[in-house]
């Protein structure tokens, strides 16, 4: 919120993403920091950053679908899986370059997501959540039961490394730059989408779909589009994932992973791209802490064995989702906005 008396005088100014010089400076500093990250931090931190960048792409997609368009989606991991499988099959069988496989992975995931978006035209609320869960089960079933020469069945698929002009993207640093470039493009695109005509239609449908329909918005198409875009992001993220892990298996894309992504946008704040990024950061940090601390605890309570990381993750994430829904349904972004508006208009109360 700007101080009273300061307001945009043109649509162009109103639609601007970067509004102040300080924001531009902060953005530039952040970009420089990210570009220099491989020289500043150790390999472990870069690996975590890689995970964050990939999750950011997927969570931003989910934010558009759920946070902006209000369509509950518990199948984001399945959409990601479709993208990951598409990219790895194309890369391993046809040897296409990653410049093509990553967008194609996005498109195939988008097609899969669009199918479920069509159901969203008829049903809403938790019914919709149920069909997206069904997407999750159907994805698993399809991978495991189609002939294993197609999808690798339960063995998974090994992915060749991404390659461009003879440079192979192997190792954390090279992959970091690849992920950073793709994630930047996708996030910039997301800012564009939510400010556009489509983004405004999403928000209208989220707030009241009957009223949106009366205003002339094609509600069914808007909902299907939301799924299409959300799934496209998931597919691109899945392709990046496939190139990073260099192996895809059906266990990497379960309902639990979908719930993790939903947790990210809930913690960050619904209806905000930056919120999704904050959520990704927070949740991935929590995950990293558990992964580091977990094994130490596992030694003292030995009967749990290796499951403690999974169990601890579930308890903490489940608790975080429930707590945020009860105490702060608008997420961390909302807190940040309150802080921001208070320092912007300081020393005045409003």
């Amino acid at each position: 919120m700007d101080p009273s008396g300061i307001f945009p005088t043109s649509y162009r100014a109103d639609r601007r993403v970067v509004r102040t010089r300080w924001q531009l400076l902060a953005l530039a500093l952040f970009a420089v920091l990210m570009l220099l990250a491989p020289y500043l931090f150790s390999g472990r931190i870069i690996a975590v950053l890689n995970m964050m960048l990939i999750s950011a792409v997927i969570a931003v997609g989910l934010q558009i679908c759920t946070g902006y368009a209000g369509q509950i989606n518990l199948g984001q991991a399945a959409f990601m899986g479709v993208g990951a499988y598409t990219a790895s099959i194309l890369a391993s069988k046809t040897g296409l370059t990653f410049l093509l496989t990553i967008p194609l992975a996005g498109f195939s995931a988008a097609a899969f997501g669009f199918l479920f978006g069509l159901t969203a035209a008829r049903i809403k609320g938790f019914y919709l959540a149920l069909t997206t869960i069904a997407a999750q089960f159907i994805f698993h079933f399809a991978i495991l039961n189609l002939p294993s020469t197609w999808m690798g069945g339960s063995n998974g698929i090994t992915v060749p490394p991404a390659e461009l002009f003879g440079v192979r993207f192997v190792g954390e640093t090279a992959q970091f730059y690849m992920n950073f470039v793709v994630a930047s493009i996708m996030v910039a695109g997301a800012f564009g989408i939510v400010r556009s005509r489509f983004g405004r239609a999403f928000v209208a449908v989220r707030d009241d779909d009957v009223a949106a329909g009366i205003m002339g918005i094609n509600v069914a198409a808007t909902k299907a589009n939301a799924f299409l875009i959300g799934a496209f992001y998931a597919g691109v993220g899945g392709a990046l994932w496939a190139y990073m892990i260099r192996f895809v298996g059906v266990d990497q894309f379960t309902l639990f992973h979908s719930i993790f992504f939903v947790a990210m946008i809930i913690v960050g704040g619904m209806g905000s791209i930056v919120g999704a990024l904050i959520g990704v950061f927070v949740i991935r940090i929590i995950q990293e802490i558990i992964a580091t601390v977990g094994p130490n605890i596992a030694e003292s309570v030995s009967f749990l064995g290796g499951d403690i990381v999974f169990a601890g993750m579930n308890v903490i994430l489940g608790g975080v989702i429930a707590l945020f829904m009860i105490l702060e349904p608008k997420g961390l972004m909302h807190r940040w906005n309150i802080l921001k508006s208070s320092y912007r208009i300081w020393p005045f109360p409003y």
């Binding site: 719930i259 169990a311 601890g312 308890v315 989702i321 829904m325």
Partner: peptide, 18 residues
């Protein structure tokens, strides 16, 4: 409501496992 029960789903599963 939906998200709280989804949160419960993984919370309870983790608790049972712990």
């Amino acid at each position: 409501m939906v998200m709280v029960t989804v949160g419960l789903l993984i919370l309870l599963r983790g608790l049972v496992l712990l």
